[in-house]
Amino acid sequence: MIAPLFKFGYFNDEISLVVAFVIGIGFGFMLERGGFGSARLLAAQFYFTDMRVFKVMFTAIVTAMTGIFYLAWIGWVDLSLVYFTDTFLIPQALGGLILGIGFVIGGYCPGTSGVAIATGRKDAVVYSIGGMFGIFVFGELYPYMSGFLKSTHLGKINLPELLGVHYGVVVFIVILIAIAGFTVVEWGENLMAKKNKGGRNA
């Protein structure tokens, strides 16, 4: 096993910051290519007129998920050394709900607002100032909420462990769900396009 390279000591902290910058460039480039510097295009997801957010997110998840599973399977990557946060089920579900509300009101998420600022969107600057204000409010309230925030702690747990099935089975199911999802949204987009066209002509 040779990867994750950083965890096996192939390079030091200083180099890791260069790696961070390069990976960031790829991240920002792809988000902009997808149209994610545009709040209207991101918000369109929630009005069923353009399902790009769903398509890009799930294609990315399927790609990275399948890739890391394959590399672990052939013995290149130690999957246990790849970091993701512990699960705190209720705080994360509630956080997701509030974040979704903030998404459609603000038009961005933190990553896409960075791309929007880079491409000149002034509303994204206001959005990010709001983001820092929200983090500040959270920080001030943190001492009062810490009990709740640490509740329903399940540890660093993945779906295969939770369901007690082989990792590959979950990978396969997620791929099937993604394909089904893509089929449905393509069909739905065509339906919406026809409906809008019909409305304009009438």
């Binding site: 994360q92 509300i101 998404f103 983090i135 959270f138």
Partner: peptide
Amino acid sequence: GGSLMGFAAKMA
């Protein structure tokens, strides 16, 4: 929207 998002991202 940004404020809600910042708060929520810390919670999650």
